[in-house]
Design a protein around this nucleic acid. Structure first.
Length: 472
RNA sequence: GUCCCCAUCGUCUAGCCGGCCUAGGACACCACCCUUUCAAGGUGGCGACACGGGUUCGAAUCCCGUUGGGGACGCCA
């Protein structure tokens, strides 16, 4: 049997972090076993499905690098096939037409709720031989669920889960307008696409029993189910659109690398001993459904930050630089045209002091554009009264023949010694002068990257500022 | 309400087919070291088996219950 997994999102919103992890697990399992991974868009809800949401899913998958072997399949393109199976079930007697009105169903539901029993269809039309004379609405089609016994779902993460068939009512598999519903199309698709392993959120565990029964009615062996626990937000609550960056693409925009997000996601609900950092190859090699946790997990943003920084430091500079470019662009900076330092050297200098690419872009902007203003507090502390130091620095740096970190370091040290100051006393004024604030990479590297002309002119501006504010 | 799932540090988790666990790792936090700012790095610290019953020579590990979370109960997916 070739392993086939599928990711089957409904295009009604973003590809959120929970869906992304489900997709990752499915992808990993298929890759692990040299199987197929298919993408299926569950768009049978014409009201809520949107092209934007479809794009968001496709974009998110591709950003994460989760490539699929087949699809995307759209369920709206398969209505003929569903109709065919519906006809067959009607003919075989495993499904029946139900003429109950929505009003009756609603009344039934509220009545059951007040009686404190589980709301379910009472089966009024189950054994009807002909349409009732007073039928007013187009009939829906219901699946004829077994009435007796139990249905056992042998779940690979939850174990054997038994449902009393009396709990499972006759669910609607086609609406009054003839369009098929979720629990039915899933079954037909999984059957047609020969899905061997259904890996999905455990909010579907209850559905598994009904789906397995439909499959059996169709004479097909149900797939292997693996219901993975949910992902909760930081507060341990269900993820909602309001929970900040819930969409995968929001993570990109917030400055995270796909490698970090993937690595973070794989450790949510799954572990391989004590290992925290995994290459894609390692994930594929080690991933196993048996190691998936049983309980829900909450998001831990600071751990994502840590992983992101790890990848910022470890991944090839050129690769990180390409990602950094888009965030610089968001700040209106085009490194190529701004004439500043090579992006890769910036990445090298900034990686260990950045959690995200957004941070890195912000703290590196000064390399490409003169800061519009000094941070007030820093300027007061480090620039005020530093005219002499700044002037000495200008002279000493101006005299440098080769503009490299080593020479710059010597020059700065020289000024500090000449004035009997600790290095910090002269480095901080330089930082504020060139970067606008008190933080930057080591001062010699900062100046080297910035370039001699820019460095000297910013030093001069800072000196002017110091003179002007000393008078006031 | 009914049914289903779950329960180890603040968070992610190792362990779970019982003794190697005075419960390990990671993130976060705190302290110290390093230091040219901020970081990064190093060292150390804080910190959990939800509760109650069993079973057993022995339970985080097995069983039952309680409590607490979560999910499902739609002509949504």
């Amino acid at each position: 049997m070739t392993v086939t997994t599928r990711f089957a999102p409904s295009p009604t919103g973003l590809l959120h972090i929970g869906g992304a992890r489900t997709a990752l697990f499915c992808w990993l399992y298929a890759r692990r076993h040299g199987g197929r991974f298919v993408l299926r868009i569950e768009d049978t809800d014409l009201e809520r499905s949107t092209p934007e949401a479809i794009n968001a899913i496709l974009e998110g998958m591709s950003w994460l690098g989760l490539d699929y072997d087949e699809g995307p399949f759209y369920q709206t393109h398969r209505f003929e096939r569903y109709a065919e199976v519906l006809e067959r079930m009607l003919a075989e007697g495993s499904a029946y037409r139900c003429y109950c009105s929505k009003e009756r169903l609603d009344a039934l539901r509220t009545e059951q709720q007040t009686r404190k029993v589980k709301p379910r269809y009472d089966g009024r039309c189950r054994d009807l031989q002909a349409p009732p004379a007073d039928a007013t609405e187009a009939p829906v089609i219901r699946f004829k669920q077994p009435r007796e016994g139990h249905t056992v779902v042998d779940d690979r993460v939850k174990g054997k889960v038994a449902f009393d068939n009396a709990e499972l009512d006759d669910l609607i598999i086609a609406r009054g307008d003839g369009s098929p519903t979720y629990n039915f199309v899933v079954v037909v698709d999984d059957m047609d696409m020969q899905v061997s392993h259904v890996i999905r959120g455990d909010d579907h565990l209850n559905n598994a029993a009904r789906q397995a029964n439909i499959l059996k009615a169709l004479g097909v062996e149900p797939p292997i189910y693996a219901h993975v626990p949910m992902i909760l937000d930081e507060a341990g609550k269900k993820l909602s659109k309001r929970t900040g960056a819930a969409g995968v693409m929001d993570y990109r925009d917030a400055g995270y690398l796909p490698e970090a997000v993937i690595n973070y996601l794989v450790r949510l609900g799954w572990a391989h001993g004590d290992q925290e950092v995994f290459s894609l190859d390692e994930m594929v090699e080690y991933f196993d459904i048996a190691d998936i946790n049983h309980s829900a997990s909450s998001l831990n943003p600071s751990k994502l930050d840590w992983l992101n920084q790890h990848y910022l430091k470890m991944l090839p500079r050129g690769y990180v630089a390409r990602h950094l470019a888009r965030h610089l662009a968001d700040l209106g900076i085009d490194p190529a045209r701004a004439g500043g330092p090579d992006l890769e050297t910036v990445v090298e200098a900034q990686a260990e002091r950045s959690k995200t690419l957004v941070e890195m872009a912000q703290s590196s902007a000064f390399f490409y554009q003169t800061p519009s203003a000094y941070e007030e507090k820093a300027a007061r502390k480090h620039l005020l009264g530093s005219e002499t130091i700044l002037e000495a620095l200008q002279q000493s740096l101006h005299a440098l023949e080769s503009w490299d970190a080593e020479a710059i370091h010597e020059a700065v040290m020289g000024v500090a010694e000449a004035q009997a100051l600790k290095l910090g006393k002269v480095a901080q004024p330089i930082r504020v002068a060139v970067a606008g604030g008190p933080v930057s990479p080591p001062i010699d590297i900062t100046l080297e990257l910035l370039g001699k002309d820019a460095a000297l002119s910013r030093l001069e501006s800072a000196r002017q500022w110091a003179i002007k504010h000393a008078e006031a």
